[in-house]
């Protein structure tokens, strides 16, 4: 008799464990996306930026629930470290031989800024104008050459996705 009681107790114990979470709230488990296949997406791998000229970032940001914010970083790639997420043909294979001499002279350009996205958006067409100064704050010319353009987008839950492109910069003629 006692054993049967045990068995019953055991079933109740385990059953309650296994069925505890019926009332799960739906939580977001999907990462946001950066779509660079849209018409006129910019910049892409191999794109060129010019110091002293504005350019416009154009990409489509998407999330299944709600977008958070995004951040842009542009930094030099003179040491040829890489975060590239996009396949670029010749860039990858010449790597270390392809050392940019200009990188050694002048100041390296560095840009980092984060931007908010209006709340409640599932899709956001990024159309952000960025101004690149012609000269550094000391009045020196920026070093042209290989740079990285990185964009990271988050959703409200804290998931993030990022893309990194290898770009070229040049000084104004």
């Amino acid at each position: 008799m006692k054993k049967i009681i045990y068995t019953l107790l055991l079933s109740v114990f385990l059953f309650s464990f296994a069925s505890c979470n019926k009332d799960d709230e739906e939580v977001d488990t999907q990462k946001p996306e950066i779509d660079i296949t849209i018409d006129g997406a910019f910049p892409l791998n191999g794109s060129e930026l010019c110091f002293g000229e504005d350019f416009t970032i154009k990409m489509l940001l998407k999330d299944n629930q709600e977008l958070g914010s995004y951040s842009i970083e542009i930094h030099s790639n003179f040491d040829h470290h890489s975060h590239s997420t996009e396949e670029s043909d010749e860039h990858h294979h010449e790597e270390h031989e392809h050392h940019h001499e200009e990188g050694e002279e002048g100041d390296a350009f560095y840009f980092s800024q984060d931007f908010s996205i209006p709340s409640g958006q599932r899709e956001y067409l990024l159309n952000q104008k960025i101004s690149i100064p012609e000269k550094s704050s000391d009045g020196d010319e920026f070093a042209a050459g290989d740079y990285h353009f990185m964009i990271t987008v988050t959703d409200k839950a804290g998931f993030s996705s990022f893309k990194a492109m290898e770009i070229e910069t040049k000084n104004k003629d």
Binding site: Y70, S71, I72, D114, T152, T154, A157
Partner: peptide
């Protein structure tokens, strides 16, 4: 350690804040 949707530029070099 909670990942937030925000970024920090000055202290975090533009990385996501946790």
């Amino acid at each position: 350690l909670n990942p937030t949707p925000g970024f920090d530029r000055f202290y975090g070099n533009g990385n996501q804040i946790y």
